[in-house]
Design a binder for these strands. Structure first.
Lengths: 130, 130
DNA sequence: TAACGCTGTGTAATAATATAACATATTTAA
DNA sequence: TTAAATATGTTATATTATTACACAGCGTTA
């Protein structure tokens, strides 16, 4: 089973919307916005979100219960995400830092655990809000 | 205003409970357990949790909406947390790795953002579940 | 082509997580 | 000893997410 290239109708509608926003969107705000396109129920939104997260088109910002598009064209980083979050204006940016990724990818604890995913969220104040 | 040494009644009850568990507890499971101690409403639980998180006695596992006690006696790491989470048995362990902490503490993005906190969650399979 | 598995859709109901608003009590500090 | 800050108690409600069920479309394969 290889990576799916074609998205379903609902998945497309919802990915479109998220990609048009440069900031994370919440599930019920997405629902509100796609009602005009015939998506009526939370579950329809959550199902599409689940799929889009799974294939790496979007990421969930766990501390905010919100979803942001992955700007990385290859979208192979669903399993290794780093974000910076401004606690004042709530601006969220995905961080791609080679050295940091390397470090995290290679991290080994002393419990013999096998990692296949990580998510890192930095919090602070962005330049505008300092 | 220095670090508060004395916790209020509700805060103590709830911290006690969380410290007795070596795994994260969810707010409503905490509520259920403390009803016999006279805590009746979600808000009473959430208020205590907020405070305990703020002073570093517990941490929130964001991806699980659950709370775990901080084992670090000094509890000064509320703002710099790393966890490993087994996706099979849901076992959660707080990680203290000097080199990793150093790396994360010193991380600078290229946006001039000032960080004061981070949270990192590793996912995978623990030794038992591999 | 018919039967099957897989993925997706639609809908209703409900579960789980979290906060707002208001009144009052207790502790702390000036 | 009074004012400010912190904590409590209660009701109601907002927000986030899932369960359960019925069915549609599509590609495989027997």
């Amino acid at each position: 089973m290889q990576k799916q290239e074609t998205l379903s109708k609902n998945q497309k509608i919802i990915l479109d919307l998220i990609e048009k926003s440069d900031q994370p969107l919440k599930a019920y705000s997405i629902l509100f916005d796609v009602k005009k396109k015939g998506i009526n129920a939370p579950l329809q939104v959550y199902r599409a979100l689940d799929k889009l997260v799974e294939i790496g088109k979007i990421h969930k910002i766990e501390s905010r219960n919100a979803f942001i598009a992955c700007k990385n064209s290859k979208c192979q980083i669903a399993k290794a995400t780093v974000f910076s979050i401004c606690e004042s204006c709530e601006d969220v940016t995905e961080i791609h830092d080679h050295k940091l990724s390397e470090h995290l990818r290679n991290f080994k604890d002393n419990k013999g655990m096998k990692y296949n995913k990580y998510n890192l969220e930095f919090f602070g104040l962005c330049k505008k809000c300092i």
